[in-house]
Design a protein around this nucleic acid. Structure first.
Length: 425
RNA sequence: GUGGGUGUAGCUCAGUUGGGUAGAGCACCGGGUUGUGGCCCCGGAGGUCGAGGGUUCGAUUCCCUUCACUCACCCCA
C-alpha cells in the first residue's frame, strides 16, 4: 500500500498555488495599509492555552483538537485557531508596553478533527486580524470594513455582512436565564438535537434548521432586546460608524459564534456559494480574553478568514508570477548542451526566468516544451550555430528570429529581453 | 460520531442486460520538415475496472465485507 496524506489534510499542488499567492499578497498589501503588522506564531501550543481561551465546553475543545503528550509528558495541541496564540504572545512579550504594537495579522494552518466536507478540512488555513487595547467602536467598524474591503479586492461575489451583539457579562447572564426558562416551557416540542443543545449550548438553538424549532425560536427572547444601556450605546456607535463608511449590513440577532470568548459586537461575512459552509470570515470583540489568559485587562477585537473557502470562491485561474519575459534554451548536440547549461545558470543569476531540457531530445520536442512553458523567447544553440560562432534567438510571439554572436551573448540576450520589457510597460 | 452518493488510464468520464484483446476527450511520447512551438493529420505508450471474499463454466458487471473519496447532519473560518 502506498502512503497517502491524512484524511482532511490536503496537498496544494502547483496549479493551485497561484491562487494562494494571490490571496496572501492581497492580504499583506491591504492589511499593511490599514496599519497591521504581521506576527508569526507557533503551530503547537500547550493544551491549556486553548482550553482556557476557547472554552472547556465548546465542541472545538471537547472533541476536535489534535492533542497529545510530547516525549516529556507535556500535553500539547496543534492550534485549532490563532487568536489564543496571538494573545499569548502579546502577554508574554509585554507588548502592551509598546504602543506602536496594537494591530496584528497572521496567516497559517489550523487543525480541527472534524469530518471533512466542502469548505471544511482537518488542516485548514486562516488569515487572522487582531486589535488589542483599543476600546473604541470605531475600531470595530474599521476591522469589519477591512474584512469587506479585502473580500471586495478579491472580487468575492455576493457577500453579506451579518452583525450581532453578544452583550457583556452583565446583560448576558440574566438573558441566559430567561432563554433557558423559555426553552424549558417548550422543550417537548423541540427536535432531538435541540433537546441536547438546551443544556450544552442553548444559544445554538437559534441556528436550528428544523421548521418546528424555527417557529419556536422566533418567539424566544433575544439577547438584542436584553442589552444593558452601555451595550446598546456601544452597538449603536458601531453601526453609526459602519453607516458613515457606507457599509451595508444585516442585523442578525440569532447569529451565534462558536468560541466562548466573544462579547459585544460579533459579525460574519456570509456567501451563498459554499454549500453548507456559508461563513467566509467571522469575528468580533473579545474584551475578557487577555485577562483570562493572565495578562493585563485590555480589550480586543478581530476576525478570521477561511482561506480554503476564499479559494473555492476564486474561480479565475491565477498563475504564479514571473517576469514578463521568459526564456527557453534549446540545445542540439553535446557541446551545445554543455554551453547552454552554463548560460542558463548565468542568465538566472541575472534575474530572468530560464528553463531548458535535460534529455537531449529533438528540437521539435524542445520547442513544444518551450511552448508549454509559455516562454516569450527561445534561444536555439545548435551545432550549426556553434560552428558559425552564433546562436539563434526566436521570439515566440512574433515567430521571428535573429542570429546573435556567441561573443557577448549573455549581455545581448539581456538587453534584447529588457528592451521588450520596456515595450510591454 | 450518524446518514447519502461515488470508486474504470495521470485528469474528466463512458461502457459492460454476466462472455472474447475494456473505450473517449484532455494530458503524455513519437512521426508528418537531416534542426523549429501552437492548429491539423497519423501512430504509440499508459488500466490487477479501489481491495478482499462469495456465486458461476466464466465476474470489471451479481452478492457480501472492507477501504478510500465525497456531500450532508453536527460544528465552524
Amino acid at each position: 500500500m502506498t502512503i497517502t496524506a491524512i484524511k482532511g489534510i490536503n496537498d496544494i499542488l502547483p496549479n493551485a498555488v497561484g491562487k494562494w499567492q494571490l490571496v496572501e499578497s492581497v492580504a499583506r498589501r491591504i492589511f499593511t495599509n490599514f496599519g497591521f503588522q504581521e506576527i508569526r506564531i507557533p503551530i503547537l501550543e500547550k493544551t491549556e492555552l486553548f482550553a482556557r481561551s476557547i472554552g472547556e465546553s465548546t465542541d472545538i475543545v471537547e472533541k476536535e483538537m489534535y492533542t497529545f503528550p510530547d516525549r516529556n509528558g507535556q500535553l500539547l495541541t496543534l492550534r485549532p485557531e490563532a487568536t489564543a496564540s496571538v494573545v499569548r504572545a502579546f502577554i508574554q512579550h509585554r507588548l502592551h508596553l509598546q504602543p506602536s504594537m496594537r494591530k496584528f495579522y497572521t496567516i497559517g494552518p489550523m487543525f480541527r478533527h472534524e469530518r471533512p466536507q466542502k469548505g471544511r478540512y482537518r488542516q485548514f488555513h486562516q488569515i487572522n486580524v487582531e486589535v488589542f487595547a483599543i476600546d473604541d467602536p470605531m475600531v470595530d467598524a474599521e476591522v469589519i470594513y477591512l474584512l469587506l474591503v479585502f473580500l471586495e479586492e478579491l472580487n468575492i461575489p455576493d457577500i453579506t455582512l451579518h452583525l450581532n451583539s453578544m452583550g457583556c457579562p452583565d446583560c448576558r447572564q440574566p438573558f441566559r436565564q430567561s432563554l433557558t426558562s423559555y426553552l424549558d416551557s417548550v422543550s417537548a416540542k423541540l427536535c432531538s438535537d435541540c433537546q441536547r443543545r438546551r443544556s450544552t449550548n442553548p444559544l445554538r438553538i437559534f441556528d436550528c434548521k428544523v421548521e418546528s424549532c424555527r417557529q419556536l425560536v422566533a418567539k424566544a427572547p433575544v439577547l438584542m432586546d436584553h442589552l444593558c444601556d452601555d451595550c446598546v450605546d456601544n452597538f449603536q456607535s458601531v453601526k453609526d460608524h459602519l453607516d458613515s463608511l457606507g457599509v451595508s449590513y444585516t442585523i442578525d440577532p440569532h447569529m451565534v459564534r462558536g468560541l466562548d470568548y466573544y462579547n459585544r459586537t460579533t459579525f460574519e461575512a456570509i456567501t451563498p456559494h459554499l454549500g453548507a459552509q456559508n461563513a467566509v470570515g467571522g469575528g468580533g470583540r473579545y474584551d475578557g480574553l487577555m485577562k483570562t489568559l493572565g495578562g493585563p485587562d485590555l480589550p480586543a477585537t478581530g476576525f478570521a478568514i477561511g482561506m480554503e473557502r476564499l479559494i473555492l470562491l476564486l474561480d479565475e485561474q491565477t498563475d504564479v508570477e514571473t517576469g514578463p519575459n521568459r526564456l527557453f534554451v534549446a540545445c542540439l548536440g553535446e557541446e551545445a548542451q554543455r554551453r547552454g547549461f552554463g548560460l542558463v545558470q548565468e542568465l538566472r543569476l541575472r534575474d530572468l526566468f530560464v528553463e531548458m531540457d535535460y534529455e537531449s531530445r529533438s528540437l521539435k520536442a524542445q520547442m513544444r516544451r518551450a511552448d508549454k512553458l509559455s516562454v516569450t523567447h527561445v534561444l536555439i544553440l545548435g551545432e550549426d550555430e556553434l560552428a558559425r560562432g552564433a546562436a539563434t534567438l526566436r521570439n515566440m510571439e512574433t515567430s521571428t528570429q535573429e542570429e546573435i554572436p556567441l561573443e557577448g551573448l549573455t549581455e545581448q540576450i539581456l538587453s534584447r529581453l529588457k528592451l521588450s520589457d520596456q515595450e510591454l510597460t
